[in-house]
């Protein structure tokens, strides 16, 4: 039981970070970022290249992942999303753009990094063994700690910094924020860059444990969508709750349902659909987002 809980916390922390980036972008721009999983994969590959190939310290690689994705996110917002949002009759057109960007990033990953599964050397060795009740490698504990630290830092940034306050105002009401003198265009770019950066950071963290490959993008996006739906689209606390709920469901499901075959995700999907039928806006979302 303790093992299942520990696995749940570990999975939940990383899932929550993925969902945070997605929900931030959604809250600010009303864009469903299909390319979020691909951004995560790019983050993983950047860390792989710098830490695994060039042998530089892990923290440098992690920072490089963040910076690369932040720049990429800012460029995508400035030159693609912003003009399309202004020029299209229906705001759903951004979904087509997001899907196109997902294809583009997939193509770039394929050309630059190839299609092979890549892994990096362990950052710390050894396994924590607490009386055979919890068995967990030290690197997983470290990654989990880093993930939780990043989540706390992100919340603090959103709560207490000037930029964070502007972003929250933007998410609440775009027009009102503009009337209060918030530079809407600039903060949209910053927000998108921040969301993309979170995806890159998770990629950089997880490449040390699961490795990374081209095919991980799509499934990651779907999982992120599910977490956002559980918690409520565009709500920061909801994304964190959704991440931990999905993490625990997966950990418990794998422990309890494994005797019936590979049906954990089927059960999760079906219970999600039932949940959404009863509470369409998720746990903490505004009705009709």
């Amino acid at each position: 039981m303790e093992q299942v809980l520990a696995n749940g916390i570990y999975l939940g922390a990383q899932y929550a970070m993925i969902a945070l980036g997605l929900t931030l972008i959604f809250a600010l721009m009303n864009v469903l970022n299909f390319a979020h999983g691909q951004m995560y994969v790019i983050g993983g590959f950047v860390t792989y290249t710098i830490y695994g190939q060039l042998g530089l310290p892990y923290i440098v690689a992690l920072l490089a992942s963040c910076v690369t994705l932040a720049v990429l996110g800012a460029l995508i917002e400035r030159f693609l999303f912003a003009p399309v949002i202004k020029g299209s009759a229906r705001e759903e057109s951004t979904m087509l753009l997001a899907a196109g960007i997902a294809f583009l990033l997939d193509a770039l990953i394929l050309l630059i990094f190839g299609e092979k599964q890549r892994g990096v050397p362990k950052i710390v060795n050894g396994v924590l063994n607490w009386d055979f009740r919890i068995i967990m490698p030290y690197d997983r504990i470290l990654i989990c700690g880093l993930a939780i630290f990043s989540i706390v830092a992100f919340i603090a940034f959103m709560q207490f910094s000037r930029t964070g306050r502007a972003l929250r105002a933007l998410a609440q009401d775009r027009t009102a924020a503009q009337l209060m003198g918030v530079n809407v265009d600039r903060y949209s770019t910053i927000g998108f860059a921040l969301g993309a950066m979170l995806a890159g950071l998770v990629g950089g963290l997880l490449v040390t444990i699961t490795g990374i490959n081209l095919g991980m993008g799509g499934p990651t996006s779907i999982k992120a969508f599910m977490m956002v739906m559980i918690g409520g689209a565009g709500v920061i606390s909801g994304a964190i709750a959704g991440g931990f709920i999905l993490g625990f469901m997966e950990a418990i499901g794998l422990a309890v349902l494994s005797q019936y075959g590979d049906i954990t995700y089927l059960v999760i999907f079906i219970s999600l659909m039932i949940f959404l039928a009863i509470r369409p806006q998720g746990l903490m979302g505004k009705p009709w987002g």
Binding site: F26, N30, L32, M95, I222, F225, M226, V228, M229, A233, Y265, L266, F269, I270, L272, M273, I274, L276, A277, P280, Q281, G282, W288, G289
Partner: peptide
């Protein structure tokens, strides 16, 4: 049940439906 949802919520749940 799901047609009561709108916007991105409907979009995301139909996406999940394919996976189901």
């Amino acid at each position: 049940p799901i047609l009561r949802l709108r916007g991105v919520y409907f979009a995301m749940i139909t996406l999940v439906l394919t996976q189901v």
